[in-house]
Amino acid sequence: MTQPPSGFNLRGAVDLSALSKPAPTPGGGDAAAPQGVVVEITAETFQQAVTTSMTVPVVVDLYSSRSAASTQLSATLQQLAAGAGGKFQLARVDADANPQIAQAVGAQALPTTFAMIKGQPLPLFQGDHPAEQIQAVLDELLRVAGENGVTGTISVEEQPETPEEPEEPPLPPHLQAAYDAIETGSFDDAAAGLEAALKQNPADDEAKALLAQVELMRRLDGVDPMAALTAARDAAPGDVATQLVAADVEVSTGQAAAAYARLLAAVRSSGGDDKEAARARLVELFLLADPAEAAVLKARRDLAIALY
Rank of each mutant, 00 (worst) to 15 (best):
L210M: 11
G106N: 00
L16G: 00
A82R: 13
D248C: 00
D290G: 04
V150C: 02
I154P: 08
A209I: 10
G185S: 13
L194H: 11
G272T: 07
P237S: 03
T253G: 11
A115G: 02
D189N: 09
S64T: 01
A104I: 05
R233V: 06
A231I: 05
T112R: 09
V245Y: 02
R66K: 09
T184H: 13
E195K: 13
L77N: 04
A197N: 06
T162Q: 15
A107I: 00
A181L: 06
M226K: 15
T162C: 14
R66C: 00
D61M: 04
T45R: 02
L211T: 03
D273K: 14
I154D: 07
E206K: 12
K199E: 15
T71K: 13
D30V: 12
R219W: 08
T2W: 08
A33T: 13
D180K: 08
V144K: 06
L220N: 04
Q176T: 11
P173R: 12
P166Q: 11
R279D: 02
D128P: 01
G119I: 02
L124D: 05
T76F: 00
G254C: 09
D302I: 10
V240R: 08
E164L: 05
I101M: 09
P111H: 00
P291G: 13
M217R: 15
D61L: 01
A227Q: 15
L229N: 00
A18T: 14
I101R: 03
R262F: 00
A227G: 15
V59R: 02
A277R: 09
A31G: 13
D189T: 14
A192K: 12
D94W: 03
L307R: 03
T113Q: 01
P22C: 12
A69C: 00
V137P: 05
L210Q: 13
A102C: 04
A277L: 01
K118N: 00
Q243G: 09
A246M: 02
F125I: 02
G36I: 06
L285G: 14
T242L: 02
T45E: 01
R11T: 11
F8E: 14
Q48A: 14
T25Q: 14
Q120T: 04
G238W: 08
D273E: 14
